[in-house]
């Protein structure tokens, strides 16, 4: 039987390990890479959507506001869906047409992304980007997909992370905060755990479907006209290949959750997931989604996060005087 003292000691050790896991100081450089990566992907996406802003997000776009949004809804739940229609009166008061107002909002979004990329007024840029991303995606719910979900999640986390501490104009001006911090570790851990949980959930849900075990999911995904980039119907003649890829996807996504915490298995696991996303970009054309996922994976697990000062101390360490002391 375990006595109370042993249990208390175990609890204390577990608490200490958890505290160290979450709060040991870390370099903010991975978060800087995250900031640059997210901003670059979302800027590229904004560039590719700029000509169709009205079609996607406008009142008279492909799916008009009235179809997916009840402007008369004053309930608390409506607050969960900030919508571009909220700006209508503001546009009117400035004498802007709704179309001009929409492009004005979009240009603020793009400007904030540029600031985020450069790390200039990083916190403010983050807030503006997140808020406007919420407005834009809520105003076009029929056209959003995975990349928008991850953009929202990443930008929300970015609000709380010391993103401007490295590789930024703010850092050059001495306003980015410390490059090593406990806040950087907390931010990094949240990002890592979110990714690991997400792949686990995705892998389990895929594993519950027969299509991922008999290869039909891969067959469908790469031959549907909506996503197919090449004629992949030849896969029907080699059914073992999509089956192998289906199994690999499920095992990789579930295994990622366990593999990324071990130093030896981390890099192979992350590189395998990155390869999967490269495949998604190449064979399914989901370039924005794949790019964002690659950015999240690289910044979470592949950019060294040991505190910069600790690394410098290790590099500057000279064993000779210690040898003399020993002698």
């Amino acid at each position: 039987m375990i006595d109370r003292e042993t249990m208390n000691r175990s609890m204390q050790r577990a608490t200490a390990a958890m505290t160290e896991f979450f709060t040991e100081p870390a370099s903010a450089k991975p978060l800087a890479v995250l900031r640059i990566g997210i901003a670059a992907v979302l800027l590229a996406q904004a560039y590719s959507l700029a000509a169709n802003v009205g079609d996607l997000y406008g009142r008279n776009g492909l799916i008009q506001w009235g179809v997916t949004y009840d402007a008369d809804d004053r309930s608390a739940m409506a607050l969960a869906y900030p919508h571009l229609s909220w700006f209508s009166r503001l546009f009117e008061s400035f004498g802007l047409s709704e179309s001009a107002g929409l492009y004005f909002v979009f240009s603020i979004y793009v400007t904030a992304l540029v600031f985020l990329l450069l790390g200039f007024k990083t916190r403010a840029a983050c807030i503006v980007t997140f808020v406007l991303q919420v407005f834009l995606s809520n105003s076009s719910p029929a056209t959003v997909y995975g990349v928008d979900s991850f953009a929202r999640v990443s930008l929300f986390y970015a609000l709380w992370m010391p993103l401007g501490a490295g590789y930024s104009i703010d850092a050059l001006r001495g306003r980015g905060g410390s490059i090593d911090s406990r806040a950087a570790r907390v931010g990094l851990r949240v990002l890592q755990l979110h990714l690991a949980l997400m792949y686990l959930a995705s892998g389990i849900e895929k594993g519950l479907g027969a299509q991922w075990w008999d290869g039909e999911a891969i067959w469908r995904a790469v031959t549907m006209p909506e996503l197919a980039q090449f004629d992949m119907t030849w896969l029907a003649g080699v059914p073992w290949l999509p089956m192998l890829l289906g199994w690999a996807t499920v095992i990789l996504e579930v295994g990622y959750f366990f593999a990324v915490w071990n130093r030896r298995t981390r890099v192979p696991a992350v590189l395998a997931i990155v390869s999967m996303h490269v495949g998604i970009a190449l064979f399914m054309g989901l370039v924005s989604f794949a790019s964002l996922m690659i950015v999240l994976n690289i910044s979470a697990f592949l950019v060294p996060c040991a505190p910069v000062r600790m690394r410098q101390a290790a590099l500057e360490f000279n064993p000779l005087p210690m040898g003399r002391v020993a002698a």
């Binding site: 895929k206 519950l208 039909e216 469908r220």
Partner: peptide
């Protein structure tokens, strides 16, 4: 979000 991309099937 539930993240069930292409799950349980396509």
């Amino acid at each position: 979000k539930s993240y069930g991309f292409f799950a349980p099937g396509v």
